[in-house]
């Protein structure tokens, strides 16, 4: 069971790609330094404004691009949920696998002004704009994906089953 997610929203447009989250030059840096470059090409300074508990609201085709773990970077910046008109299939996998709740939700982009508070009930596929009162109903993620998210992602899930090497 995933608790109700509530947070301040940041808005991003269409086709936000993985290289904007982890630029190529940042791949060469140690993992803990990578988040500070997130969106430096399209929204410089944003990483200093985002706070733990915030939510992303985006347009179509969010996360298009590479396998690099952009979802992990967003999570490490404190983002607790991604809502978008549509989410690239690979990016959705990475969100689920790294334990970042993500929900494709048609109509979400025009339903929020940046800074509005979103309330998300993942299991019901329900999104509410607490400022306007607007309620959006979308298709909930399949149960199997909700279970991975509830476990906190793939690593805790596999750890819980005793399938990972404890030596590392």
């Amino acid at each position: 069971m995933i608790r109700k997610l509530e947070g301040r929203t940041w808005k991003f447009g269409d086709n936000i790609n993985t290289d904007l989250m982890i630029p190529s030059f940042a791949l060469a840096e140690p993992e803990e330094k990578q988040p500070k470059y997130c969106f430096s090409a399209n929204r410089p300074g944003w990483v200093d404004l985002v706070k733990p508990g915030d939510i992303l609201v985006a347009g179509n085709n969010f996360g298009t691009g590479s396998s690099r773990p952009g979802a992990k970077v967003l999570k490490s910046l404190g983002i607790i949920c991604l809502l978008a008109e549509s989410i690239n299939g690979l990016f959705l996998r990475n969100c689920v696998n790294y334990g970042l709740p993500a929900l494709p939700c048609p109509g979400v982009f025009s339903s929020f002004n940046e800074g509005d508070i979103a309330s998300v009930q993942l299991e019901e596929g329900k999104v509410v704009n607490l400022n306007s009162g607007r309620v959006l109903a979308t298709t909930a993620l399949p149960n199997m994906l909700l279970e991975i998210l509830a476990a906190g992602g793939i690593v805790p899930l596999l750890e819980g089953k005793g399938l990972l090497d404890k030596a590392r």
């Binding site: 396998s67 773990p69 299939g89 690979l90 996998r93 399949p142 793939i154 690593v155 596999l158 990972l164």
Partner: peptide, 22 residues
């Protein structure tokens, strides 16, 4: 199709994975 590193970890352990049918 595009997959991520943790997809591969799951597959290395279990040999199966999930796909949404689009």
């Amino acid at each position: 199709r595009g997959m991520g590193a943790l997809d591969m970890l799951y597959i290395l352990c279990i040999g199966r994975t999930w796909f949404p049918v689009g």
